[in-house]
């Protein structure tokens, strides 16, 4: 029992890993083509950008907020950086382009963070508003043009693979940006686990008032959360532009709820205070694996959205039911806990 509980993990990572394993095994039995390096590499490739964006959202969700402006921040900062390079005809090199996008993303995040932290408004509403503002501003002041070719340094990166293998099913490529997403996952994991900043995210998400009393500068931390989210999203945006080998300002936008669904599937609590990098990574991977296997079994990819929705209901529903069960089992008079569970149940 103890072992089982440990395996399940704090946020159901264990169950998620088990589901992932079952899906992979089942698919491999059904269709041996699935179990190949090629499939693994292509899934990793497809998961790269959603992974980076999901990790950005994870930070906000742990802190008890929700952000719907991150896809616009991502594509906006990447598109702006590309536009500047192409308009001036000067290619400053990859680090500078990434740097430029990160600065823009950070500034956009600062706007979010400032309004949210300063005026203490609901995060969903504020980011809804800024989403419209950022999107409009990008298209009005930066441009609406689709760029089919990127600056040379970015175009060169598009074709770089870390691993190239020749397997029986053809050549398999592992794109270099997959490493970037892994690096970001590791950094965010370390930040969440070992830094004061990361721990205060959990504290604020758990109880903002409690965090304030414990001496955490809530307002300042919140400001930094959104700046950080903007910066990570900008990296995701540049990665997206590089991998799609073109810059289209209308891309990514509208996919915010899909990413949030992946994060929630990964065990993060929408109320804040709970969530892990491992869970998010598994959530994103699970969605990509399902997407890939649906195609292989011959189910149209249109079913993907429905499948993700169903998984979400099963995952969150199981959590809700087990929370209710444990609430019924414990007959303590700890009203604080009872009220919290009650609230979770009714809200």
């Amino acid at each position: 029992m103890q072992l089982l509980r440990k395996f399940r993990g704090a946020n159901n990572e264990g169950s998620l890993a088990l589901i992932l394993l079952v899906v992979v095994l089942g698919m491999s039995l059904l269709n041996p083509v699935f179990f190949s390096v090629n499939t693994a590499f292509s899934i990793l490739r497809a998961a790269t950008v959603p992974m980076i964006l999901a990790l950005a959202v994870l930070l906000v969700i742990i802190s008890g907020g929700i952000d719907v402006s991150f896809p616009v921040v991502a594509i906006g900062s990447a598109y702006t950086a590309v536009t500047i390079c192409l308009k001036t005809g000067f290619d400053p090199g990859l680090p500078a382009i990434f740097g430029m996008a990160i600065v823009i993303g950070g500034l956009l995040g600062l706007v979010n963070g400032f309004v949210i932290a300063k005026f203490r408004l609901p995060t969903l509403i504020v980011t809804l508003g800024t989403q419209g503002i950022f999107f409009g501003a990008m298209l009005v002041y930066v441009g609406t043009r689709y760029y089919p070719t990127l600056p040379d340094s970015m175009a060169a990166l598009s074709a770089v693979n870390v691993v190239e293998l020749t397997t029986s099913a053809g050549r398999a490529y592992l794109h270099v940006l997959v490493l970037l997403s892994i690096a970001i996952a590791l950094i965010i994991w370390a930040v969440l686990k070992y830094t004061m900043f990361g721990r205060s995210l959990y504290a604020i998400g758990g109880d903002a008032e409690g965090a304030r009393r414990a001496g955490i500068r809530v307002v300042r931390t919140q400001l930094w959360i959104y700046v950080l989210v903007g910066m990570v999203a900008a990296i995701g945006g540049v990665a997206y532009v590089v991998m799609s080998r073109s810059a289209n300002p209308q891309d990514l936008v509208g996919g915010e709820l899909d990413i949030i669904a992946a994060v929630v599937l990964g065990g993060a609590s929408i109320f804040g205070g709970r969530g892990s990098v491992l869970g998010t990574v598994l959530g994103v991977l699970l969605i990509q694996v399902i997407n890939n296997s649906l195609l292989l079994v011959g189910v149209p990819s249109a079913w993907l959205r429905a499948a993700v929705g169903l998984l979400l209901i099963l995952g969150v529903g199981a959590q809700a039911v087990s929370a209710r069960r444990s609430a019924q089992r414990i007959h303590t008079v700890d009203t604080g806990e009872a009220v919290r569970l009650e609230l979770e149940k009714v809200s």
């Binding site: 709820l257 959205r305 979770e344």
Partner: peptide, 29 residues
């Protein structure tokens, strides 16, 4: 889903949004 199962509204409707929209996509191709 919200009252009996006890799922938070934003998540329950996020899920049904995906499911219903998925059904409509499948239906209309």
């Amino acid at each position: 889903l919200i009252s009996l199962v006890g799922i938070t509204p934003i998540l329950a409707t996020l899920a049904t949004m995906q499911i219903l929209n998925g059904l409509a996509v499948v239906w209309t191709g």
